[in-house]
């Protein structure tokens, strides 16, 4: 147990060094699906943060009671409960957003980021570490979603979060808000992140 990451290390790792989207390539289904605008991306990031934080804390609290062969059942049960709460909450208080996100909120249940954090961190480490881990990973996920959403929404519609940022004469590249735009943007940004990383590690040597 001695060489396990501290809460602060867990927090920092989630944001950039082990970013769930750019480094671990997890949760890509929702990443590609909800990044056609900044607002849905932020809503998704918030929902994932709530679910991940709650699930991590609960799993960490009961980690000593977990049986190895039943742990996945417990993870899924916990995650599903919190996802359903988020889904109902959005339908009650953010009805239009809930309609726009459609099935992608219920699909957080199968978002690998969360089950991965339960397995890697929450089921082994203290509540504080698990909470810090959840916040770090959620911020990392949120930043990744926003980076893709900003590019797609601006190029696709000339607007950001509903406000016009490019002149009206901008010939909105509609493809950017369609599914191909998600793959294009994500691929290019992933390449960019890798390139920056390569340049930085070369400088260190």
């Amino acid at each position: 147990m001695a060489d396990q990451p501290t809460p602060f290390e867990r927090f920092i790792q989630g944001i950039l060094p082990e970013n769930p989207v750019y480094r671990q390539l997890l949760g890509l289904c929702s990443t590609l699906a909800v990044t056609n605008g900044l607002k849905p991306a932020l809503t998704m990031a918030g929902a994932v943060m709530f679910v991940l934080f709650s699930a991590n804390v609960i799993i960490s609290l009961i980690r000593n009671l977990l049986k190895p062969h039943l742990r996945i059942v417990v993870f899924t049960l916990t995650i599903a409960a919190f996802v359903t709460i988020v889904d109902r909450f959005l339908a009650a208080y953010m009805y239009q957003m809930s309609k726009a996100l459609g099935p992608y909120i219920p699909l957080i249940i199968v978002n690998c980021i969360i089950i991965c954090r339960c397995e890697v961190c929450a089921s082994r480490q203290s509540v504080l570490t698990a909470a810090a881990d959840a916040v770090g990973q959620s911020i990392g996920f949120g930043l990744a979603l926003c980076s893709i959403a900003v590019v797609r929404e601006i190029l696709g519609t000339g607007m950001l979060a509903g406000f016009r940022v490019l002149p009206a004469s901008w010939p909105s590249w509609t493809i950017m808000v369609l599914p191909p735009g998600a793959f294009l943007t994500f691929g290019l940004l992933l390449g960019l992140v890798n390139w920056i990383d390569a340049v930085r590690s070369r400088k260190k040597l």
Binding site: I62, L65, L66, K67, L70, V73, V74, L77, T78, A80, A81, T84, I85, R88, F89, A91, A92, Y93, Y95
Partner: peptide
């Protein structure tokens, strides 16, 4: 199985409470 059953019961009740409180808001929306 006791842990799984207990969690199912707890989460089930929590979700029922959520539904009782939010169900009519969602319908009204």
């Amino acid at each position: 199985a006791w842990l799984v059953l207990l969690l199912a019961l707890v989460f089930g009740s929590a979700l029922a409470a959520v539904q009782v409180n939010l169900g009519h808001v969602i319908e009204a929306n």
